[in-house]
């Protein structure tokens, strides 16, 4: 379904233009990190791509899809994991059932993926009483289990401590290694360097700069990116 073509994409709500005519192509393989200040439109851009929001201008076209709406083959992990009020493993099984898998397959797949993110020992605990880090790992497991071609992550470690963040980052790397395209936002420039291959830099709803991670951090071209990077805390 990749590359993903974004054509003059715009999104306005309540008279405010959040996304202003973004055009680009997102290709398979690389890990794409979307950077930008609060309110730059990072999260909205991902939600538009994932199909949670409808564009008010322009189009989003997945290759081999023919449709402009979101199709299967994508998953998304949110800043705050949304845990259903049931056991950890039941959360994964729920997602798999919705994707049309049989109960037997669901169970086996869910066990495998919980093992892979290190949650096998809490599989039967209610998801909502897990720690924040465990909940986010479960959210990743739930998305990973679907075997998506593209995984969107919206500031997946925003609320987590350094250890939990390290766990999440290594899981994201493992998901990428298993062949899934990663598209994520973060406020941590260190994380962008560690996890990213290419950077999309947004400012006030526009795509200002697109560069490889090395180029972006060494030689930012736009004045907006330069001042954004200068604002980085030591």
């Amino acid at each position: 379904m990749l590359p993903l073509t974004i054509d003059k994409l715009g999104f306005s709500i309540a008279g405010r233009e959040i996304i202003k005519s973004i055009s680009c192509e997102i290709t398979a393989g690389t890990r794409t990190v979307i950077l930008g200040a609060n309110g730059a439109g990072k999260s909205v851009l991902m939600r538009l791509c994932h199909g949670l929001l409808k564009p008010t201008a322009g189009r989003i076209v997945w290759t081999h899809d023919g449709l402009t709406r979101r199709a299967r083959g994508q998953a998304m992990v949110f800043q705050r994991p949304v845990m259903l009020r049931r056991s950890a493993i039941a959360n994964v099984i729920y997602a798999l059932k919705l994707s049309g898998m049989t109960s037997m397959e669901c169970r086996l797949r869910a066990e495998d993926v919980l093992e892979a993110v290190g949650l096998a020992n809490v599989a039967d605990r209610p998801a909502r009483v897990l720690s924040g880090g465990e909940q986010q790992r479960l959210a990743l497991a739930r998305a990973w289990a679907l075997g998506p071609e593209v995984l969107f992550l919206d500031e997946p470690t925003a609320n987590l401590d350094p250890n939990a963040t390290r766990d999440i980052e290594s899981i994201i790397s493992a998901i990428h290694a298993s062949g899934t395209k990663i598209i994520m936002t973060t406020h941590s420039l260190g994380q962008a360097r560690r996890l990213g291959d290419e950077i999309f830099f947004l400012s006030e709803g526009r795509l200002i700069e697109r560069a490889s991670v090395d180029d972006f951090f060494k030689l930012p071209k736009s004045p907006e990116a330069i001042s954004f990077l200068r604002g980085e805390l030591p």
């Binding site: 939600r47 994932h50 199909g51 949670l52 299967r72 998953a75 998304m76 949110f78 949304v82 259903l84 009020r85 049931r86 729920y94 997602a95 919705l98 994707s99």
Partner: peptide
């Protein structure tokens, strides 16, 4: 709280209603 997540997972109206009835 659930809307984005359930839409992301592709739950239709009835599946979402069922899920919410159970979860609440």
């Amino acid at each position: 709280e659930y809307e984005d997540q359930l839409n992301s997972l592709g739950a239709g109206t009835f599946a979402a209603a069922q899920t919410l009835l159970w979860d609440t």
